[in-house]
């Protein structure tokens, strides 16, 4: 069989598989740290959005509007090419983690804020009537209930984050998409490369998606 999916092309790809696995590892690493920091941003910003500090809320709205309404590629480009000129230098992995965290964090903040708002006001009153402080009310009464509401959408954001990590390819990020792009370009073997790259992304994203669907089903049942 000739053409892009010839036996020789498949054989060549499998010989290069270790290279792809390194990229796969890099994707996992960037995604994991990106997710951790996106969650931290999302929880802190989401809580602040439901609070009373107006200047802070205005600042957060500005941050979220920028990161939700500009392409991630431009954001990463700024982090990688413009910030060094201002004296801020980051390694390529750090750029990836920071870029993904800021981008996903802007969406996570919305999810957290609306999950908090979905908890009935009576819960806050019950807790405050018992003498709990604002922080205790949030930590012990509101957030545990908000997690149930927000977790399915948050899990979908995690899937998006993993796929978005492919944007690192434009700044030589060394992750899966970059490996796929550069290896296929220099060896002119595109068919097996992109099929297998897609399969590798699936092995990360599909389990998370299935988990999200399971969570959604479970939360519907418990209401």
């Amino acid at each position: 069989m000739n053409g892009p999916f010839s036996i020789a092309n498949w054989r060549a790809w499998f010989n290069a598989a270790p290279l792809f696995m390194r990229g796969y590892g890099q994707t996992l690493l960037i995604s994991l740290w990106g997710l951790v920091f996106a969650l931290i941003i999302g929880i802190l910003a989401g809580v602040a959005l439901t609070g009373r500090n107006r200047p802070l809320k205005l600042f957060l709205r500005g941050y979220m509007s920028f990161f939700q309404n500009t392409p991630l590629m431009i954001q990463v480009f700024i982090l990688y090419n413009v910030l060094p000129k201002l004296g801020v230098r980051m390694g390529v992995v750090t750029v990836g983690v920071v870029g993904l965290a800021l981008y996903t964090g802007a969406y996570a903040a919305d999810i957290v804020a609306s999950a908090i708002r979905a908890v009935p006001w009576g819960q806050t009153e019950a807790a405050e009537s018992q003498g709990l402080s604002r922080v205790q009310t949030l930590v012990f009464v509101i957030l545990p209930q908000a997690v149930k509401v927000g977790l399915p959408s948050m899990t979908n954001q995690a899937v998006n984050l993993v796929k978005n990590s492919s944007i690192m390819a434009v700044i030589a990020g060394g992750e899966l998409m970059y490996v796929a792009d550069s290896w296929s370009g220099s060896n002119l073997i595109y068919g097996p490369t992109f099929v297998m790259t897609a399969v590798l992304y699936l092995t990360i994203c599909l389990p998370i998606s299935l988990f999200a669907r399971w969570l959604e089903k479970r939360s519907v049942r418990n209401v």
């Binding site: 009935p120 009576g122 819960q123 009153e125 019950a126 807790a127 009537s129 018992q130 009464v141 545990p144 209930q145 149930k148």
Partner: peptide, 12 residues
């Protein structure tokens, strides 16, 4: 203490 019309027990 306060007892509310809509109970407001902690569901979790």
């Amino acid at each position: 203490g306060m007892v509310f019309q809509s109970f407001n027990l902690y569901p979790h």
